[in-house]
Simulated scan of single mutants.
Amino acid sequence: MGEKRLAVVTGASSGIGRATARRLAADGFEVICAARRTDRIEALAAEIGGRAITCDVTSADDIARLADEVGERLDVLVANAGGAIGTEHVADAKFDEWRTMYDTNVIGVAASIQALLPALKQAHGVIITIGSVAGMVAYEGGAGYCGVKAAVHSLMMALRLELFDQPVRVCEIDPGMVKSDEFALVRLHGDAAKAEAVYAGVDAPLTQEDIGETVAFVATQPEHVNIDQLVVRPRAQAAAHKIHRTG
Rank of each mutant, 00 (worst) to 15 (best):
residue 6 L to C: 07
residue 15 G to K: 04
residue 21 A to H: 01
residue 27 D to V: 01
residue 33 C to N: 02
residue 40 R to E: 14
residue 41 I to D: 07
residue 43 A to H: 05
residue 45 A to M: 13
residue 46 A to L: 06
residue 46 A to P: 02
residue 47 E to C: 15
residue 48 I to T: 07
residue 49 G to D: 08
residue 51 R to E: 14
residue 52 A to D: 13
residue 55 C to W: 13
residue 56 D to H: 11
residue 56 D to K: 09
residue 61 D to Q: 07
residue 66 L to H: 08
residue 66 L to F: 13
residue 67 A to W: 12
residue 69 E to F: 04
residue 72 E to M: 01
residue 73 R to A: 15
residue 74 L to W: 08
residue 74 L to R: 10
residue 75 D to A: 10
residue 76 V to D: 13
residue 81 A to I: 07
residue 86 G to T: 02
residue 89 H to G: 02
residue 92 D to Y: 08
residue 92 D to E: 12
residue 98 W to K: 01
residue 102 Y to W: 15
residue 104 T to M: 10
residue 105 N to S: 13
residue 108 G to T: 05
residue 113 I to M: 09
residue 113 I to L: 05
residue 119 A to F: 11
residue 130 I to D: 08
residue 133 V to G: 10
residue 136 M to A: 12
residue 142 G to E: 02
residue 145 Y to K: 03
residue 155 L to S: 00
residue 158 A to H: 07
residue 160 R to D: 01
residue 160 R to G: 00
residue 163 L to R: 10
residue 163 L to H: 10
residue 165 D to A: 12
residue 171 C to P: 01
residue 171 C to Y: 00
residue 172 E to L: 00
residue 176 G to W: 05
residue 178 V to A: 15
residue 181 D to I: 03
residue 184 A to P: 07
residue 185 L to A: 03
residue 187 R to Q: 15
residue 187 R to G: 15
residue 191 D to F: 05
residue 192 A to E: 15
residue 194 K to G: 08
residue 196 E to Q: 15
residue 197 A to R: 14
residue 198 V to R: 07
residue 202 V to A: 05
residue 205 P to F: 01
residue 207 T to R: 03
residue 213 E to Y: 00
residue 215 V to Q: 06
residue 228 D to Y: 06
residue 230 L to Y: 06
residue 232 V to G: 06
residue 234 P to T: 10
residue 236 A to V: 10
residue 239 A to Q: 07
residue 241 H to D: 07
residue 244 H to K: 13
residue 246 T to N: 06
